[in-house]
Amino acid sequence: MNSRVLHIAVNTFREAVRDRVLYNLIAFALLMSAAAVLVGMISINIERLVVVHLGLTAISFFGTVIAIFIGIGLVSKEIEKRTLYTVLSRPVRRWEFIAGKFCGLTGTLVVNTFFMAIGVFLALAYVSHHLNSFDFAVLVAVYFIVLQFLIITALALFFSSFSSPLLSAIFAFALFVIGSFAEDLRGFAGMTHGIARWLATGAAYLVPNLSALNIVNQAGHGQGVGAGLILFNSAYALVYTLAVVSAAVVVFERRNLK
């Protein structure tokens, strides 16, 4: 990695960690501990299903909140506080700044997710008394959630590159919600005709297909996940992320930092 991108990424990560972003892990740990104990008492034979659903949903929820609420300030906060001026007056390209910010927040989310995933597996081990090969699907589900974070972070960064934090949050959250129902949107497009079909199809392919990256149900039921799906989803998320970050760079390269 370009050394300036790396320095900016490390600084972004350090700022996020010191800003107590990882405190959400405490809430998550408490949630998982309580859930593991409670479901053990009130569920009959579905303890594993409940823990997987609860754990993966919590990982997704906490990560999405962090991705949106830190992502929307990645550029706009730096402009507002003028910290960006002292960075861009150095031999740093604007694209390097955007790339560094993206990598820094993504790194924060990966570390955060790593610890939460350990929590989920500990809770699983507690309720099931052992881990087995079915739990590999849980690991893949966590990986897909990380891919979702890549896309959401890129979107938040994109909106942050030209919009205010409030509008960026609204736009990013709206796309997150629509993207979570992208399969339904594609189904709707298939049922319409004429120009509506064109518009709906265009919108369905433009918004991120986050529903394809959600395999919580499969993981909960211990169903296997094919290598093809893993490869396809990885490629899709990386291409989509790269496209959105590139768009952020294009916008930011032309922006006057008033």
């Binding site: 600084n11 350090r14 700022e15 010191r18 800003d19 506080k81 003028r82 910290t83 001026y85 002292t86 007056s89 150095r90 031999p91 740093v92 390209r93």
Partner: peptide, 21 residues
């Protein structure tokens, strides 16, 4: 020119930096 940027220093008006560093 990036070579030029390595040879200049800039103090913005009312500077503000990263709180947690």
């Amino acid at each position: 020119d990036r070579r030029m940027k390595a040879q200049i220093g800039f103090l913005p008006e009312q500077p503000y930096f990263y709180d947690h560093l």
